[in-house]
Every structure is written in structure tokens, then in C-alpha cells.
């Protein structure tokens, strides 16, 4: 594990130096990423310009959901987002060269093109978390305060697993990257909002089938002091890390299976 982190930092650092060759492009990309994140938030502000509550939730509450989801997605994307390029590596035969190094291919693809732009989403969402917390007017208890880092960590873990699953899927369907986006970027999109607005059936699906509810919804209900519309036991509010762990095991299995059955292209 320590070795993997060492290699990860080494590779990421090398790509950073590589990116430093094009400073103007990097600054522009970093800025656009940040602006894009703010525009997403602007969309929420536009919605709330017309209504004080969305699905029963206030603006600071939705901002809290938006920010916690955004931070989890940003951290997962920064560290692992490029694994979705697996399909390209298979198509171009470059996965073969990655397999020749004494370092796992997942690590190599995850660090690929590592550059400052990846931070573009993290800073704005972190700012929004602070802003939303200041407007929330919550009675902070130790348990509430402890739930916040727990949900962020669980969210990161869930998105890590989703990204690896999305990559592993491309071992089976090489051109399937965009379909996999529906769980990675789709997951990032729905968790910005209170999941209850999508209806009870969707909420059940997002709890039991594709457990995106554990990214931030379930723990946020506890932090915001709201009842669970599905009436699930209190334990579910704190289950994020457990769900993340289960998904991580599934993702690791899928990745290994895919790699083992990998059929390299002709030459």
C-alpha cells in the first residue's frame, strides 16, 4: 500500500512536470473547470430564484448536498478519473506497454496526464461547503461533526469504486465508455440534489440497486436533522463507508476479471 502510494505520487509528479511545459493551456483549463463548477451552482441559484424550496429543501440545504457530492466527485476524479480512458488504451494497443512495467496498469492510467486542472472542481466546491455551513444554522453536536468527514470519505470511496467499475466494463465493451458515464457523471449529477425529488421508486433504486444514496443523501439527512422519507433505520445514515467498502470489493473483482480475460489486439 505504501509502495503503491509512493509510485502514485512519483507518476503523478512526472505528469505534472510534463504539463508544466504548457503553462498557458493549464491555467486556462484550470480556470474553465472552476467556472464550469460555479455555473453548475449558478443553475441551482437560478432554480431557487423562483422558489424558496425544492422538494422541501432550502437553498443552503441543497448547496450542502451539492458541495458534499461535488467534493467527493472532485477527489475521486482527481485521483482516479482518467481510468475511464481504458477503452482508448485497449483500442490503440497501449495497454500492452503499460502491462510490461512492474506497476499495476490501474495506477498508471489513473495518474496519466495528471495536471493542475484536476483541482479545478475541488476548490469551488470546498468554498461552497463552507458557505452552505454558515447559512445552515445547525445545532452542532459531536456526532454531527463526525458524520461530515465520514460522508465525504464514504462518497469518495463510492465514486472510486464506480469509476473502476466503469473502466472494467470497457474490458467487455471497448467502445462503451459513454454508457459508463451514466453511472459516474450521472451519479455525480443526481447526488447534487435531494434524492427525494426524483420520486420514491427512484429513491429505492438509488438505495438498494445503485447505492448512490450513501454518497451524501443518507448521512446528510442526519446532519440536517431530517427524517428519512423511506423510513430506513438510523444505522443507514452512517453506512456510507461500509457501502463504499462493498462496492470497492466488487470493483476490484470486476477489474481483475477484466484484466485476466483481456485479449490484446493483433499487433
Amino acid at each position: 500500500m505504501v509502495e503503491a502510494v509512493r509510485i502514485y505520487l512519483l507518476l503523478a509528479g512526472t505528469w505534472m512536470r510534463s504539463a508544466a511545459q504548457y503553462p498557458a493551456s493549464m491555467v486556462m483549463l484550470l480556470a474553465t473547470q472552476a467556472v464550469a463548477t460555479f455555473l453548475d451552482a449558478a443553475a441551482i441559484l437560478i432554480v431557487f430564484a423562483h422558489t424558496p424550496r425544492l422538494g422541501g429543501f432550502s437553498l443552503p440545504e441543497v448547496m450542502f448536498l451539492y458541495a458534499t457530492s461535488g467534493i467527493s466527485v472532485a477527489v475521486a476524479d482527481i485521483t482516479l478519473g482518467t481510468v475511464e480512458r481504458l477503452g482508448e488504451h485497449i483500442r490503440h494497443g497501449t495497454l500492452d506497454t503499460l502491462l510490461l512495467r512492474p506497476v499495476g496498469p490501474l495506477l498508471q492510467i489513473a495518474t496519466e496526464d495528471f495536471n493542475p486542472r484536476r483541482m479545478g472542481k475541488l476548490v469551488p466546491t470546498a468554498v461552497m461547503l463552507v458557505v452552505s455551513l454558515r447559512h445552515l444554522d445547525l445545532h452542532w453536536t459531536l456526532a454531527r461533526a463526525a458524520t461530515l468527514p465520514l460522508m465525504l470519505a464514504g462518497g469518495v470511496g463510492i465514486f472510486w469504486a464506480l469509476w473502476v467499475l466503469a473502466a472494467a466494463w470497457q474490458f467487455a465493451v471497448v467502445d462503451g465508455k459513454q454508457a459508463a458515464n451514466s453511472i459516474t457523471y450521472g451519479g455525480a449529477y443526481v447526488t447534487q440534489y435531494p434524492l427525494s425529488i426524483f420520486g420514491r421508486d427512484a429513491l429505492r433504486g438509488l438505495t438498494w440497486v445503485l447505492p448512490l444514496a450513501f454518497v451524501n443523501w443518507e448521512p446528510a439527512l442526519y446532519v440536517l436533522g431530517r427524517p428519512d422519507p423511506l423510513g430506513l433505520p438510523v444505522f443507514f445514515r452512517f453506512a456510507s463507508p461500509l457501502v463504499a467498502a462493498v462496492l470497492a470489493v466488487l470493483a476490484a473483482l470486476a477489474w481483475r476479471t477484466g484484466l485476466r480475460h483481456y485479449q490484446s489486439t493483433g499487433s
Binding site: 423562483h50 465493451v173 459513454q178 454508457a179 458515464n181 451514466s182 450521472g186 443526481v190
Partner: peptide
């Protein structure tokens, strides 16, 4: 096919938000 699948899924998600609004 894979892209249009995701487009459709996103259609449902965006619809969900707009319905609430």
C-alpha cells in the same frame, strides 16, 4: 449506442429536477 443510452438516462435525471421545480 452507448452515448445515446447515457443521454437518455440524463434526460430522466434532468426531468426529475425540472419536475420538482
Amino acid at each position: 449506442l452507448s452515448a445515446t443510452f447515457t443521454n437518455t438516462i440524463f434526460g430522466f435525471m434532468r426531468a426529475g429536477v425540472l419536475i420538482a421545480l
